[in-house]
């Protein structure tokens, strides 16, 4: 392995998990490529109406 590290991360998948990984990394000093197959990020959570157990709006 070469000694040179690249300070960037590819996050594959723009659902709730991918988005938050990307935000955490970008906010702590790493360059992030967020790759999503679909036309927008948000994933399945954006399709949900409410979330348990607080019944908060998922959107």
């Amino acid at each position: 392995m070469s000694n040179k590290l690249t300070g960037s991360v590819v996050v594959i998948g723009g659902g709730i998990s991918g988005m938050l990984s990307a935000l955490d990394l970008a906010n702590s000093g790493y360059y992030v490529y967020l790759v999503e197959k679909g036309p927008s990020i948000g994933g399945v959570m954006a399709q949900l109406d409410k979330t348990f157990p607080t019944n908060d709006c998922a959107m």
């Binding site: 960037s8 991360v9 590819v10 996050v11 594959i12 998948g13 659902g15 998990s17 991918g18 399945v44």
Partner: peptide
Amino acid sequence: TINAGSIIFSPGF
């Protein structure tokens, strides 16, 4: 082509 140090794979279900 992207050069990156790590990959996070979160493809969902």
